[in-house]
Amino acid sequence: MSGRQKKLLQQLGLWVLIVIISVYALFPFYYAIITSFKSGSAIFQVTYWPTDFSLANYWGVLAQGRFPRNIFNSIVVSFAVVVLSLLLAVTAAYALARVRFQGRGILLFTILSVSMFPQIAVLAGLFEMVRGLGLYNNLLSLILAYMIFTLPFTVWVLTTFMRDLPIELEEAAIVDGAKPHQIIFQVFMPLMWPALVTTGLLAFIAAWNEFLFALTFVSNDAQRTVPVAIALLSGATEQEIPWGPIMAASVIVTVPLVILVLIFQRRIVAGLTAGAVKG
């Protein structure tokens, strides 16, 4: 075998792998999309290519029932969680990254451990707390509970990021007589947008996808977030399991995420490797 042939073969092998990987990653999503466009009994015919283009399932999910409301809930909760955790994390990260004080290492280690907490371990205690505060079936309970995984994560990533900001900037600001909070919000903040966007996005996705707390802390349809709504979606009509609407709902909530991922893929990868957020 000549060198050129060998090289060609290698290229071929690489491309075969690339195609397999892409198909493997995308096929379930693709299949959900083509299923969501089928209506009636067409859904029970296995097809590999799009055959129907009926919007009935989307209409059913969006126009009847509570699904738009659930999407709104998810947006509110995820957004509030992101804003709150970034707000708390930026100042905390400054303290952890730029100030040397006693107990800093232990604090950082504790924060890292909390971000790896199994959520079930706090479920009983949190349930008690939510009930005690009268927050049951209220989205505030979820905003509170989600802090347990978004806050440590954002603090950690922002700390690593802030540590790398040039010291000269800070020194110059100090010479000008700036106070610590001015350093954070006027000097560092403008440099931190990329990091804030990345961590914010990752925290958003984590909150958007959370299931255990959402299943436990809210009851009514109108308060459910998207994952719970999809998990508990029951057929209001005479079908067995409403696969069509479930697939339509799945596509609706996934498309925005996919678009975000496509736009921010470089940042996401950077953020993931910096913080190793949960999968």
């Binding site: 939510v130 009930r131 049951y136 009851s219 009514n220 349809d221 508990l232 029951s234």
Partner: peptide, 27 residues
Amino acid sequence: DIVTMPASTTDQFGQYRLWLSAENPDI
């Protein structure tokens, strides 16, 4: 208002007990 639940009675029961013990006033 109807609050919907999946058809599996087992899941329903667990959720009902949860809501009732949370003294949920919304159902």
